[in-house]
Simulated scan of single mutants.
Amino acid sequence: MGDSLSHDNLFSPPSLHNQRNFDSNLVNFSPTSRLINLNDCLNVRVRRNILTLNESQLADYINSVKRLYLDGTIDRLAFFHRIHYHSSHNQPLIFWWHRYFIWKFENELQRIKPGLTIPYWDASEEYKEPHKSIVLSDKYFGGNGEEQFHCVVNGFLKSLVTRLPDGKANCIKRAYYGSVAGTLDPWNDTQKIVDIIKSSKDSEKFRVAMEDSIHLDVHQGLGGLDANGYMNSPISPLDPIFYLHHANLDRWLYTWQLSSFQRFEMINGNQRLLNGTLIKLTKDYELDGYQNVTLDQILRIQEKPLCYTYDYLPLDKLSSTK
């Protein structure tokens, strides 16, 4: 038995593991420390800041992503995301569900190039004028869409197509949302996220504050208020920045968890089902769309089945007096 993605079983079923005890001295955590029982992870993947990749690493990532567009994987993931959009947005499940979703994408990357991981874009560090970020340049992921059809016309995306949402060949679309055409208004900065972590005593408070701040900033900023760009729509995984963005959100979620060891046991909120029924979110809740994958299995990213971490987890910022 295993999880299912659309109608395909692409990966081996995740193993079940018991809860592990965590050292309460979390302020000294480093991604490579033995603070966490790695629970049989022979290799722990390390996701790195996109701005630290050298030219060869960046080329490997972009070329692998292009392959996933060409073989239909990106379309399939975006379609799956659209199907489960209701249960994974504006709901307590959002960041947990996306933790597993992008991990599945990362496994697809490794099918193309073993060892490849998703880089993250620390967008809150470029909050003042995000449209000037090198991430939105020709060398990386292209910039704004053109005015008429909102197609990205620079970078590697200009030559790629999707069959979503209507079965026809469509370009990859972006539509900047800013007070001046072709620009992006300032986003929430890193200090805002640090304040959210400090003030959020349970996972639902963290979720609400994050979803309405940097999460929304990037999705709405690149997708446009009217969702002319894909990033502000249920098929947002069609934009490759989606994966960088959610890797960063997951990095902040893990930082929130590490900031107090009790937070690894903390699942809060009421999940609304499609029929309108509210149920309390618990560790045995099965992720929508993934058979036999529960929240309990993905709470600790350095244990199986996930086995990954980040090059920098900003716990040092939590001790700041700013």
Rank of each mutant, 00 (worst) to 15 (best):
L253C: 05
M1A: 15
H84G: 00
N144H: 13
V180M: 01
T32D: 07
D250F: 03
P130Y: 10
D288E: 11
T282G: 10
S213T: 15
G72R: 05
V194Q: 06
S6P: 00
N154Y: 01
L287M: 08
M231R: 11
K198G: 01
A59I: 09
L136T: 05
S260K: 15
H84L: 02
S56I: 13
D166G: 11
P237L: 00
D226M: 12
I267C: 01
G229C: 10
V153F: 01
D250S: 11
R163F: 03
R111Q: 11
V65T: 12
Y120S: 04
N90V: 03
L281C: 11
T52L: 09
H215Q: 14
N107Q: 15
M210D: 00
F156A: 10
A247P: 02
K139V: 07
S233H: 13
H150G: 00
Y100A: 02
Y230C: 00
Q91N: 13
A169K: 15
F156E: 08
N37K: 13
D239W: 06
F79S: 12
V135T: 08
V293H: 04
N28F: 08
N37A: 11
D60A: 05
S159Q: 12
S159V: 15
D311N: 06
T190D: 07
P119Q: 13
L249E: 10
N18A: 15
P92I: 11
M266I: 05
L216Q: 14
M210Y: 01
T32V: 10
A123W: 14
I196E: 04
K317V: 00
G143P: 02
Q262D: 07
K201D: 09
I118W: 03
P130Q: 03
G289T: 06
L222E: 12
E146G: 04
Y120M: 14
N232H: 15
Q191R: 15
P119G: 03
N37E: 07
R99I: 04
I94C: 07
F105M: 15
C171A: 10
W121N: 06
G178Y: 14
Q302A: 12
R263W: 02
S236H: 15
K168G: 03
N49P: 08
E55L: 11
T32E: 15
L306R: 08
C41T: 10
V293T: 01
F206E: 06
Q302P: 06
H86F: 10
F156M: 12
K158I: 00
K192F: 07
I241F: 00
C41Y: 04
A209N: 12
D122L: 04
F261H: 14
N268F: 11
Q19C: 01
K280W: 01
Q57K: 13
L38Y: 06
I197T: 11
S320E: 05
E147C: 01
R99G: 02
L136D: 03
T162N: 03
C151V: 14
Y230K: 09
S87A: 07
R45N: 11
L42K: 15
L109Q: 09
L249P: 07
R251N: 11
G115S: 04
L26M: 10
S15D: 09
L184Y: 08
N54F: 05
G2M: 08
P114T: 11
D212S: 14
L26G: 10
P114Q: 14
